[in-house]
Computed example of a mutant assay.
Amino acid sequence: MQRDELTAWLRLLLCPGVGNTTARRLLAAFGLPQSIFEQDTAALGTLASAAQVTSLQTRPPDLEMQVEATWRWLQEAPIEGTQRWLCTLGDAMYPASLLVTEDPPLVLFMLGQPALLPSLGRSVAIVGSRNPTPQGTANAKQFARAFSDAGLAVISGMALGVDAAAHEGALEGPGADGLATVAVVGTGLDRVYPARHRDLAHRIAQRGLIMSEFPLGTPPVQANFPRRNRIISGLSAGTLVVEAALQSGSLITARYAGEQGKEVFAIPGSIHSPQSRGCHSLIRQGAKLVESAQDVLEELRLPETLAPNSPGLFRSDGAGEPASEDDSGLLIHMGHDPVSLDALCARTGLPTATLQARLLELELDGHVGRLPGGLFQRMASA
């Protein structure tokens, strides 16, 4: 991309009050952004409001700074083995699945492997809570690994919790012709948010893609994260919600998926867990209840599916050796809902010190998860 072309695209992107819908109408009528800015007031007025015409005819005050920053970002050496580029609405490489959605971004800032873009056609989104239960984290990781083993790329938002677990699980498998995972972020690509995911971002870029519709320098503004969720759902064949509270950004992603005609899947959980209520609400609204990755693959009618005993499909990553006979009895007493230490003492009759020691051993072996509030929960594989 030449600098004058970059300037025109960024000017269109930064015009206050214009928005994607009007910008797309202008592009359809006049072609590239350079042509839009060559039009007179009368021509622009046939497709835009008076306020929008004024905005289009006024150079944004921060345009030159943004052009310089973006041009420098494109020229600088990226993470080893990766590339940086802008994928515009007129680009032949623009993701086809996103192009047909109601509100495709004008520009996608990209970091990673451009050769992997065609593989985006075989992908599934995994989203969920930023504060998942241990079981939710394990589910996100093992479902992502199973999808990757089945030849799918996993799309998520690189947030804390379920998103990060999904990316990690996908990076353990082969993905879609080398495309392991895609992170759609809500900030500019010149920063990593949250900062603790810097190493994860590097690994995603080396085996996949990181993308954003927001200009460089965009900070983590709360309103941007729900907006980017339409891209996560739009890129994928279906969206799996692992855990979500009733007021959750994951439900926004699921709503976008439904509006885009995509499949929505949800993993059920305990009726006592706030993190399961969003999934249960989705299921009541028609989302597909799933218990294994195979359920998703079959619903999407994908030809490459895993055999029932394939590693990662049903077995939890954290599960070590099978629990001993004594521990199996304790697990039975636990059930599958969160339970307190006092309740377990009453159910088992064991002394508190003995019970704490055995629970610690089960936790280290991946059979039990520790929850906030002093609660424990049996992991699904145990």
Rank of each mutant, 00 (worst) to 15 (best):
S123G: 10
S123P: 09
V124P: 03
A125V: 07
A125S: 15
I126S: 05
I126T: 02
V127D: 01
V127H: 03
V127W: 04
G128I: 12
G128K: 08
S129M: 07
S129P: 09
S129K: 07
R130V: 11
T133S: 15
Q135I: 08
Q135S: 14
Q135C: 13
G136E: 06
T137K: 14
T137P: 04
A138C: 14
A140P: 08
K141I: 01
F143V: 05
F143T: 00
A144C: 07
R145V: 00
F147I: 01
F147M: 13
F147D: 04
S148D: 01
S148R: 00
S148T: 07
D149A: 13
A150V: 02
A150T: 02
A150G: 04
G151F: 01
G151S: 00
A153D: 02
A153P: 03
A153W: 02
S156R: 02
S156D: 05
G157M: 10
G161I: 09
G161T: 11
A165N: 05
A166D: 00
A166F: 02
E168K: 08
A170P: 03
A170S: 05
A170N: 00
A170I: 00
E172S: 11
E172P: 01
E172F: 00
P174W: 07
A176V: 09
A180R: 15
T181G: 07
V182I: 14
V184N: 10
V184Y: 08
V185I: 15
V185Q: 07
V185P: 09
G186P: 12
G186D: 13
G188V: 05
G188C: 08
L189P: 03
D190K: 06
R191C: 11
R191W: 04
Y193M: 04
Y193K: 06
P194Q: 07
P194C: 10
A195W: 03
A195S: 15
A195C: 03
R196E: 15
